[in-house]
Nucleic acid binder design. Structure first.
Length: 654
RNA sequence: GCUGGCGUAGCUCAGUCCGGUAGAGCAGCUGAUUUGUAAUCAGCAGGUCGGGGGUUCGAAUCCCUCCGCCAGCUCCA
């Protein structure tokens, strides 16, 4: 009998007979490993434990501690769910059922949508199947036989998948879970050895989806669920979902009276007084950051003639996303969906010298995008939005340095908010415009800039825009969710379209390169992100109300008013709670509003010229002279605490 | 835009299945209380039941339609 030699991660090797399943390797190492084994990686490929070893190579056993385990487990859980569904709803057709970042889903064609009771029933069935510890058995079927089988079983979608995914193959792999009914699914695998490995899962929601995500195809019902390696992890995830609900910016926005929506202006926020204060704080912060970095602020029109959009190409490519104004006597007009064309006109409005470059136009005016009604969502997806937009006009030789400056700017901004982030470089797509050398140079410049700025990044091959490569930044908030915020895009096309030029040192005309860039992204989305990041407990420098004066009784109103005036004169955002309520009541309200400082003023304070300071999270801090409090507060604002520190979710504050 | 769910007082929600002219808590207002670190007591007021149309003697409730919100799909220069 022939033998193969396999190498283990510790460098040791052993010889086994050809065709030995990897399971036996695990068993040969230790009984514990065999028990903990989920799958194996043979020569870099993830395979089932049942996979027979055919040639010499490396073997690593995947256990619950391996990074590969979780997606594998979730994929297997999706199969388990499909088994439960076909068992409970005969005639249900299966689509696809992959693992996702947060769990898994599986799509089905069924007679009616799933309701919550269905999910409970399916979950119970899954638990039952898991308890029986049924093996996931891999079978290789002749391709034609598999097609015939699924055709006969009334699963045309599976037949279609086999045809598309296994063209030219003689055999296809299928997995079975054998209960009273046998569930068979076409799938490359691999899977956990048996359903007993699936111990911590939960179905979360059902919704509509389309076969292959295309609305022209058959409508399907998708069930989402999640699975983890332990109950503890599952519970932690469910707790996090609860926490996310508590932090929902729509809820906190209403509670703190930051913004509102009205059905007569869908997708456009009304900024209430406190929200406007917050907005202005952010807008001024950004101005204060950009001005020293060499930016100038401009304001360009909101409505433009169609001609502008034809020049920019938006009329051809983006018109369906723009609000058009059609008046009988004029050419069509359109509300701007981006600032760039306006900035190009400003750039072109005077002769530009190489000595002037880089030129950086910053603009915060509102933009309008006609988003489909179904995608609107709170502040995160709106029709009226404002960006911390800017366009940098540079010489090609300046790209790397300019992008490096941008990266450093971004690093500073996010650290001021205590936000972590990750950076992606998106490179040339298949349908690019322009010369390939230009692209190569641009991509090299971006990489150079990333390295110079000490910025780690990943590469999204082929995900750039058709007019240039870009850098996208995903911000991670205090509870680990990602939000796409900053974006830096190189653009060689628009300068052509708008015939932008500058006079170089050689006294000849040259084409500048444009960098489209934003750091917040949009104010709307960024504020939504910040609300959820801080859970409404604003650091002092951002808080719409930084301090509230709480007089103990009516006779302290006058003193409270004087305290308020002094704080306001120092530039602090301060209010007084003048209601005839007990101090405990006023404190409770202020706590719920998450006002950073509560200043209790009674007889003692009025007599001594002090305030008794209560911190939102620190509690009673004792009496302090008014001036001392002001000085401390201004210092805290200047240092942007606590946002400048590692974000500490104040979840304990309810 | 598509699929499903939802829309009742400022907010959170009950009432809708089985049609009989709207209910709670909080917020608000008034009065009493003058309060020392997370809810003082009492009273009052507040609603075109998302809009329009229909069925019916009678519609928050049943039907049609439009709008909005939520989840998901698709989209996101």
């Amino acid at each position: 009998m022939s033998q193969v030699t396999i190498t283990l991660p510790d460098g040791s090797s052993r010889a086994v007979s050809t065709g030995t399943p990897v399971r036996d390797i695990a068993a040969g190492i230790s009984a514990g490993l065999a028990k903990a084994a989920f799958a194996a990686i043979v020569d870099g490929t993830l395979v089932d434990l049942s996979c027979p070893l055919q040639r010499d190579g490396s073997v690593r056993i995947v256990t619950d501690r391996s990074p590969e385990a979780l997606p594998l487990l979730r994929h297997s859980t999706a199969h388990l769910m499909a088994a439960a569904v076909t068992n409970l709803y005969p005639g249900a057709q299966c689509g696809i059922g992959p693992a996702t970042d947060e769990g898994f889903f599986y799509d089905f064609i069924v007679d009616r949508p799933f309701v919550p009771e269905d999910l409970e029933a399916i979950e119970s069935k899954m638990k039952e199947l898991a308890q029986q510890d049924l093996p996931y058995e891999r079978q290789l079927w002749p391709r034609d036989e598999a097609k015939a089988f699924f055709t006969k079983r009334g699963e045309p979608l599976k037949v279609q998948l086999i045809e598309e995914k296994t063209e030219g193959q003689k055999e296809v792999s299928c997995y079975t879970i054998k209960d009273k009914e046998t569930f068979i699914d076409f799938c490359v695998g691999p899977h956990v050895p048996s359903t007993g490995k699936l111990k911590a899962f939960k179905l979360l929601s059902a919704s509509n989806a389309y076969w292959k995500g295309d609305a022209r195809n058959a409508p399907m019902q998708r069930i989402y669920g999640t699975a983890f390696l332990s109950d503890k992890d599952l519970k932690a995830y469910l707790t996090q979902i609860e926490e996310a609900k508590k932090r929902d910016h729509r809820k906190i926005g209403r509670e703190q009276k930051l913004f509102m929506f009205h059905q007569w202006a869908p997708g456009a926020a009304f900024w209430l007084a406190k929200g406007t204060t917050l907005w202005n704080t952010l807008a001024d912060y950004m101005r204060g950051t950009l001005f020293p970095a060499g930016y100038v602020e401009v304001k360009t029109p909101i409505v433009f003639n169609k001609a502008l959009w034809e020049t920019s190409g938006h009329w051809q490519h983006y018109r369906q996303n723009m609000f058009l104004i059609q008046e009988s006597e004029s050419e069509p007009l359109a509300l701007k969906a981006m600032n760039c064309p306006g900035h190009f006109l400003v750039f072109a409005s005077e002769g530009r010298s190489y000595r002037d470059l880089p030129i950086r136009f910053h603009e915060q005016t509102p933009l309008h995008r006609k988003e489909a009604s179904g995608v609107l969502s709170g502040l995160t997806r709106v029709r009226q939005l404002s960006q911390d937009d800017a366009h940098c006009f540079v010489m090609e030789s300046q790209i790397a340095e300019e992008v490096e400056r941008l990266l450093r700017l971004m690093q500073r901004v996010y650290s001021d908010f205590g936000l972590k982030y990750s950076v992606r470089l998106s490179t040339r797509p298949p349908d690019f415009l322009g010369a390939i050398e230009t692209w190569n140079h641009a991509e090299a410049s971006l990489k150079q800039a990333l390295e110079q700025a000490n910025q780690t990044y990943t590469i999204d091959e082929g995900d750039g825009t058709f007019y240039g490569p870009k850098i996208d930044v995903d911000v991670t908030d205090a509870i680990g969710r990602k939000w796409q915020c900053a974006t830096f895009q190189l653009d060689y096309q628009m300068p052509e379209r708008f015939d932008l030029k500058y006079i170089g040192a050689d006294n000849a005309e040259h084409r500048p390169v444009v960098i489209h860039r934003a750091i917040f992204g949009t104010f709307e989305r960024f504020i939504g992100l910040l609300i959820e990041h801080y859970a409404g407990a604003w650091p002092l420098w951002l808080a719409p109300v930084q301090a509230i004066v709480l007089p103990i009784s009516d006779r302290h109103q006058e003193y409270a008013g004087r305290v308020r005036d002094r704080l306001a004169a120092a530039g602090l955002r301060v209010e007084v709670d003048v209601r005839q309520e007990k101090i405990g009541y006023k404190i409770r309200e202020a706590q719920l509003q998450k006002v950073p400082y509560m200043l209790v003023t009674g007889d003692r304070e009025a007599a001594e010229g002090t305030v008794s300071v209560r911190g939102r999270s620190a509690g009673d801090l004792g009496a302090r002279p008014v001036d001392a409090f002001i000085a401390d507060a201004l210092d805290e604002i200047r240092r942007k605490e606590p946002g400048a520190r590692a974000p500490q979710p104040e979840a304990a504050e309810t």
